[in-house]
């Protein structure tokens, strides 16, 4: 079966390797915004449980705008979007990047690993804002 076709038997998309130079997009609700324009480090967490991963979208199959619109419960204009290089994520202790496509989101990627204070502080150093809280596109 061609790799660009979902498994019609209910298995979903195949997982693929993500290169260090690829970006991961992540939406950030406006309440995580700080006064100085940065984002609170609490946004870097595993959901729904600490044993799960931190959900992101792989740039190969998503755009920042698509990532922004993926929330099921809040409108897109309540979110900013950040990006992180997969390679930089992998330099953070205990973090692993794994493409975990969902039937309705081929780009879905989990960042597994405990999000303790060290990890969250280091995440805070590697992200770039792509869509601001005001909806403005930022990074090139």
């Amino acid at each position: 079966m061609a790799s660009d076709v979902a498994d019609g038997l209910g298995g979903g998309w195949e997982s693929e390797p993500i290169l260090d130079e690829d970006f991961l997009f992540m939406r950030v609700h406006k309440t995580w915004a700080k006064r100085d324009g940065s984002i609170s480090l609490g946004v870097f967490k595993n959901t729904p449980t600490p044993q799960d991963g931190m959900s992101t979208d792989w740039q190969k199959y998503s755009t920042p705008e698509e990532t922004r619109s993926h929330s099921a419960r809040k409108p897109p204009d309540e979110y900013a979007v950040i990006r992180m290089l997969a390679g930089k994520v992998r330099t953070i202790p205990k973090q692993e990047v794994e493409h975990t496509p969902l039937p309705d989101n081929r780009a879905h990627t989990d960042v597994f690993g405990e999000k303790d204070e060290e990890a969250r502080l280091l995440f805070g150093r590697i992200y770039e804002m792509v869509i601001g809280f005001d909806g403005e596109s930022l990074a090139g």
Binding site: T31, W32, K34, S40, L41, G42, F44, K45, P50, K115, R120, L121
Partner: peptide
């Protein structure tokens, strides 16, 4: 003084 994960509070 910021929202932390899962109801916790961060001092940064």
């Amino acid at each position: 003084i910021s929202p932390g994960p899962n109801g916790s509070i961060d001092l940064h």
